[in-house]
Amino acid sequence: MANKEGIGAVLLRVVLGIIFLGHGLTKFSGGIENTAGWFGSIGLPEFLAYIVAGLEVAGGIALIIGLGTRIVGGLFVVLLAGAIIKVQWAAGFIGGYAYDLALMAMAAYLLLNGSKLYSLDGYIVKTKNKS
């Protein structure tokens, strides 16, 4: 039987994955060129839009299925720190970086603790231990 901590980690992992997958798909479906132009308008290299959107889609899927959870969590911490500093900070806490900070805390939890329950990571570990 799964423990409460394991179930909590699964909930964080899957919800964070869905959120990032949605954000990444929106960037692509809305025209990634538009997102790249916006990146340029705030002083970031436009090619970063492709990296960010790709990370959001691939990382979101990886979290949903539980593959590379700690690595993706770490990448999302870095991504969110950049978003907070470059985009959200000027808007203040409420209406600004509060949402990104909450997502960053979720990602940091996954970076530090992982989430093996109902995940490919957990399956891989079990398979290696049987060998």
Results as ranks from 00 to 15, higher is better:
Glu33Asn: 15
Asn34Lys: 15
Asn34Cys: 10
Asn34Arg: 14
Ala36Tyr: 00
Ala36Asp: 01
Gly37Arg: 10
Trp38Met: 12
Gly40Asn: 03
Gly40Glu: 05
Ser41Glu: 10
Ile42Leu: 00
Ile42Cys: 01
Gly43Met: 01
Gly43Pro: 01
Gly43Arg: 01
Gly43Ser: 02
Gly43Lys: 01
Gly43Phe: 00
Leu44Glu: 05
Leu44Asp: 06
Pro45Gln: 02
Pro45Ser: 05
Pro45Ile: 04
Pro45Gly: 03
Glu46Leu: 00
Glu46Pro: 02
Glu46Phe: 00
Glu46Asp: 03
Phe47Asp: 05
Leu48Ile: 15
Leu48Glu: 10
Ala49Met: 14
Ala49Ile: 14
Tyr50His: 13
Val52Ile: 15
Ala53Tyr: 11
Ala53Thr: 15
Ala53Val: 15
Ala53Arg: 13
Gly54Asn: 08
Leu55Thr: 15
Glu56Trp: 11
Val57Met: 09
Val57Cys: 09
Ala58Met: 15
Ala58Pro: 14
Ala58Lys: 12
Gly59Asp: 14
Gly59Thr: 13
Gly59Asn: 14
Gly60Glu: 05
Gly60Met: 11
Ile61Gly: 09
Ile61Leu: 15
Ile61Val: 15
Ile61Tyr: 13
Ala62Ser: 03
Ala62Asn: 00
Ala62Glu: 01
Ala62Gln: 00
Leu63Ile: 05
Ile64Asp: 00
Gly66Asn: 03
Gly66Ala: 01
Gly66Phe: 05
Gly66Val: 06
Gly66Met: 03
Gly66Leu: 03
Leu67Pro: 05
Leu67Thr: 05
Gly68His: 06
Gly68Asp: 04
Gly68Met: 06
Thr69Gln: 14
Arg70Gly: 07
Ile71Glu: 10
Val72Gln: 15
Gly73Arg: 02
Gly73Asn: 03
Gly73Tyr: 01
Leu75Met: 10
Leu75Arg: 09
Phe76Gln: 03
Val77Arg: 11
Val77Thr: 11
Leu79Ala: 15
Leu79Thr: 15
Leu79Phe: 14
Leu80Pro: 06
Leu80Glu: 06
Leu80Gly: 07
Leu80Phe: 13
Leu80Cys: 08
Leu80Ala: 07
Ala81Trp: 07
Ala81Tyr: 06
Gly82Lys: 01
Ala83Gln: 04
Ala83Cys: 08
Ile84His: 00
Ile84Asp: 01
Ile85Tyr: 03
Ile85Lys: 04
Ile85Pro: 03
Lys86Ser: 13
Val87Pro: 09
Val87Glu: 11
Val87Arg: 09
Gln88Glu: 05
Gln88Pro: 01
Trp89Arg: 08
Ala90Gln: 14
Ala91Gln: 05
Ala91Thr: 07
Ala91Asp: 06
Ala91Ser: 07
Gly92Pro: 13
Gly92Ser: 12
Gly92Leu: 08
Ile94Tyr: 02
Gly95Leu: 00
Tyr97Ser: 10
Tyr97Ala: 12
Ala98Ile: 02
Ala98Gln: 12
Ala98Cys: 07
Ala98His: 06
Tyr99Ala: 12
Tyr99Cys: 11
Asp100Arg: 02
Asp100Ile: 05
Asp100Phe: 02
Leu101Tyr: 04
Leu101Ala: 06
Ala102Ser: 06
Ala102Gly: 08
Leu103Trp: 09
Leu103Glu: 07
Met104Ser: 05
Met104Asn: 04
Met106Gln: 11
Met106Phe: 14
Met106Arg: 09
Ala107Gly: 13
Ala107Met: 13
Ala108Lys: 12
Tyr109Lys: 12
Tyr109Leu: 13
Leu110Lys: 10
Leu111Tyr: 12
Leu112Val: 07
Leu112Tyr: 06
Asn113Ala: 10
Asn113Ser: 10
Gly114Met: 02
Gly114Tyr: 02
